[in-house]
């Protein structure tokens, strides 16, 4: 089969294209409403954050510095400032992403495979402690496009882990990106996104995607090193290969997601 055969094969594959009923006005209306909704969510979250800070900061006055809450520790950095822009995502911290001075890092396939093995081993040991009510863990191998498979110039590795809580199967996906290889928080965290109080060297964002019955909550940890780790929790077992059985709630709390996302052992 020649390259010309490929060209003509692909050309002819779309020859039976069904009619396109494309209405640009409808598309613009949909896009506008999404932008408006994101702006409203951003404004709402900013209002809540300001209210929290208004209560937390006065409460700190007179304290001796011990026993402060994470929010009170860093009231300024944990409070998204209200933005006049239409973006739902607050300005990333650091303001420039990747952080100044961070050069994109590359790894060979062998290096990625080795790190994947190490991270897999680490998660086998750490997850039962982080998720104490979970049992019957099934750890997928780290990989790229497919489990255990890597390719040259790959910039992230990911693994899916499923487990049982109260007799129901759930799953999470852990993904680790090389320094300098991801877009900014505003480009990455795009659905119902809000910034969390800082708990480690970097910035934390939380995203919730709601697809009728399927819910995916993802915490992104943009690290000061320029690397990024995300953990996505599913209200079903996304590894089963069958039609999902959805459950009422997510299996992992926000604190647990943050604990995994900020784990220093998961840096690529």
């Amino acid at each position: 089969m020649s390259e010309e055969d490929v060209r003509s094969g692909l050309r002819d594959a779309v020859a039976d294209e069904p009619p396109l009923h494309f209405d640009p006005d409808e598309l613009v209306a949909t896009a506008r409403s999404q932008v408006r909704r994101r702006a409203l969510v951003a404004a709402g979250l900013a209002t809540v954050a300001i209210a929290v800070a208004a209560v937390a900061v006065p409460a700190m006055v007179g304290r001796d510095g011990s026993g402060t809450t994470p929010v009170a520790d860093r009231p300024a950095s944990s409070t998204p400032s209200p933005s006049p822009s239409t973006s739902a995502v607050p300005s990333p911290r650091p303001d420039q992403w990747p952080p100044p001075g961070v050069e994109p890092v590359t790894r060979t396939v062998d290096e990625l495979r080795q790190r994947g093995k190490e991270m897999g081993e680490h998660l086998r040991g750490s997850l039962p402690a982080t998720l104490p009510s979970a049992t019957d863990f099934v750890h997928g191998e780290f990989g790229g496009e497919a489990e255990g498979e890597y390719y040259p110039e790959q910039t992230s590795i990911n693994a899916a882990i499923s487990f049982t809580i109260d007799g129901r199967r759930y799953s999470i996906v852990v993904t680790s990106w090389l320094p300098g290889s991801t877009g900014s928080p505003a480009e990455t965290c795009v659905a119902n996104c809000h910034r969390l109080p800082d708990q480690a060297a970097g910035a934390l964002y939380d995203q919730t995607e709601d697809y009728d019955q399927g819910v995916i909550e993802t915490v992104f940890h943009f690290r000061d090193t320029g690397a990024m780790v995300s953990v996505a929790a599913y209200n079903y077992d996304m590894t089963s290969g069958a039609m999902p059985t959805y459950h009422q709630s997510l299996p992992v709390s926000l604190d647990q997601l943050v604990a995994i996302a900020t784990d220093p052992e998961l840096e690529l």
Binding site: M1, D5, V6, S8, G9, L10, A13, E145, A146
Partner: peptide
């Protein structure tokens, strides 16, 4: 035969599929 090209394409890993398209 040309149908086969597309069917064959759909069996490739995503990035190989993308680069050929």
């Amino acid at each position: 035969a040309q149908d086969l090209v597309h069917q064959g394409l759909l069996r490739l890993p995503p990035r190989q599929r993308a680069v050929l398209v």
